[in-house]
Design a binder for these strands. Structure first.
Length: 124
RNA sequence: UCAGUCGGCUGGAUGGCCGCCUGCGGAUGCGCCAAAAGCCUCCGCGGGAGGAAAGUCCGGGCUCCAUGGAAAUACGGUGCCGGUUAAUGGCCGGCGGGGGCGACCCCAGGGAAAGUGCCACAGAAAAUAAACCGCCCCGGCAUGCCCGGGGUAAGGGUGAAACGGUGCGGUAAAAGCGCACCGCGCUUGUUGGUAACAACAGCGGCACGGCAAACCCCACCGGGAGCAAGAUCGAAUAGGGGUGACAGGGGCGAAAGCCCCAGCCUGUUUCCAGGCCGUCACCCGGGUUGGUCGCGAGAGGUGCUUGGCAACAGGCAUCCCAGAUGAAUGGUCAUCCACGGGGGGCAACCCCUGCAGACAGAACCCGGCUUACAGGCCGACUGACAAU
């Protein structure tokens, strides 16, 4: 798994489907290739001063690293956006929040892909 | 012991598990004809946020750009004196003014007789003075709470501020009108001090209200932009830059050439000087929040010491101490220590509980200033009270 670093990738992810949970917002974009999953983090200035923003980003990073390493699928870009509640949420709840968001996004994408396939079969 | 003034330090601790960035050394692999540089992974040993890292308000280093000469002007800044420093508008020491019983604190602290302007409300009057009430003198007849002329600035009242104060003399009433003391002024002298200035003496009847943080005057200082600076690596076109040749409009002339008209640039203006403006040829070369360098041995830290009241400077010894770039320096759990709440106990203290641990995150680097800050610690001094 790699970090998402370039601005254009963040902009692309922002146009993709997203899922908001209590602790954060998760955006997911399906890429063309099947390379390793990439994860980026966004913490806006609205959430507080630099110390507060650093803590929010570090907790999100740590949640991804320790609890959710296998949940991210290759060929996808993920952007996790911090919210005001990220700092206060206890760590276990933070991890389960992100997991449920990922599950929802993956299921949605799969069903849409299946629909596309069936649609393609109906059409000649 | 209480109240207070000044200065300095600190900015939770320990451990378990799992991680991140980076320096050095080593190993495997990639790379290559070979070696080296470089890169990937792993191992070992080190290092890894602050006193303000913050605001970006001053001053420097560093980098690039600009900089032809002279003068004037504009703009911005600073403003008692001396010292200190790479430098400052910082700091230290002193002077003057103000406040406090005191330790001590505060002051944009040059010029108001160069000029312009302003001074609300109140008040007669807010500055070349003036005269509302009043006081005094003279004259008038209608003898009054009267009218007219003159003297005066003591008293009244207003205000942030009213053209010296107190006393005695003096006078019709008064007045620096005269005198004494105080205050004030002086481009007067002496003494002390590097100086700001102070003390004393002399002179002057007293002239000079405040605001320069309103304009202004005087003295001194000042190129611009910033690490997204700047350098470098990599593809093409357009565009860009340099050099050379030819070349604007009008007049005179056969031509060469000369003169005039211009426009833009070197902050502005003036004078002198210079460059540019289109076409062709040749040469150079690459925009970019892409990579790499810049990038941390420094006006460096610590200790001792010498000089100095001090800021600070010198000497010796010793140490190497963050380097990220969608941005590392952490996450989580436990215990302790503080803190808030509740309960028990005479008390020391004990138990429970709390998303509860101040302000706040390096971004090229230093020196300052300013602002934010839970709690804790230390030193010096002052004033009370008590005791000896």
């Amino acid at each position: 798994m790699e970090r998402l670093l370039l601005r254009k990738d963040f902009l692309a992810a922002a146009r993709s489907p997203s899922r908001a949970v209590k602790a954060c917002v998760v955006q997911m974009r399906v890429r063309e290739d099947q390379a390793a999953a990439r994860v980026g983090f966004t913490v806006t200035k609205k959430l507080g001063n630099a110390v507060k923003r650093n803590r929010i980003r570090r907790r999100l990073k740590e949640a991804v690293r320790t609890g959710l390493y296998d949940e991210f699928q290759p060929g996808h870009d993920y952007v996790i956006i911090g919210r005001a509640a990220t700092d206060g949420r206890c760590f276990a709840a933070l991890v389960s929040d992100i997991r449920s968001a990922l599950d929802t996004l993956h299921t949605q994408t799969r069903s849409r892909a299946a629909a596309d396939i069936t649609k393609g079969q109906e059409k000649p």
